[in-house]
Amino acid sequence: MVTDDLNHLYAMTNFGHHDSNQDGVYDITSNRVAMYRINLITKAGNFIVASDRTVLAFQDASGCIASRDKGDAPESYGEVGHRNRDVRLQGIPDLIMGTAWDPDLYPFYTADATGDDVTGSDDEDGVTLPTDMLVGASNDIDVVVTGGSGHINIFMDLDNNGTFMNNPGEHVVQDFPVTAGSQYNSCFLTNRDQQWA
Rank of each mutant, 00 (worst) to 15 (best):
R85S: 01
A73I: 04
D72H: 01
L189T: 13
M156G: 02
S149Q: 13
D60K: 11
Y36A: 12
P93M: 00
G120E: 01
L189S: 10
C64H: 00
F47Q: 08
A113L: 08
H82R: 01
N31P: 09
D102R: 07
G98Y: 10
D116F: 05
D157Y: 06
S149A: 13
I96R: 09
L158K: 05
T190F: 13
D72T: 00
D112V: 03
F58E: 09
L158G: 06
N161G: 07
D117Y: 11
D104T: 12
L9E: 11
I48R: 11
G148H: 03
N191G: 14
H171G: 02
G24R: 10
A50Y: 10
Q90G: 15
S121N: 01
A137Q: 15
D4L: 08
G126M: 11
N160K: 14
E124Y: 09
D27M: 13
T163C: 06
N161Y: 07
V135F: 15
A57P: 05
S121H: 03
Q195G: 13
G63Q: 00
D94S: 00
N153Y: 09
P103I: 02
V135L: 14
D116N: 13
D122T: 05
V173P: 04
F188H: 13
D122H: 09
I96C: 09
D60Y: 05
V144Y: 08
T119Q: 06
D27C: 12
P103F: 02
V178H: 07
N191S: 13
Y26R: 12
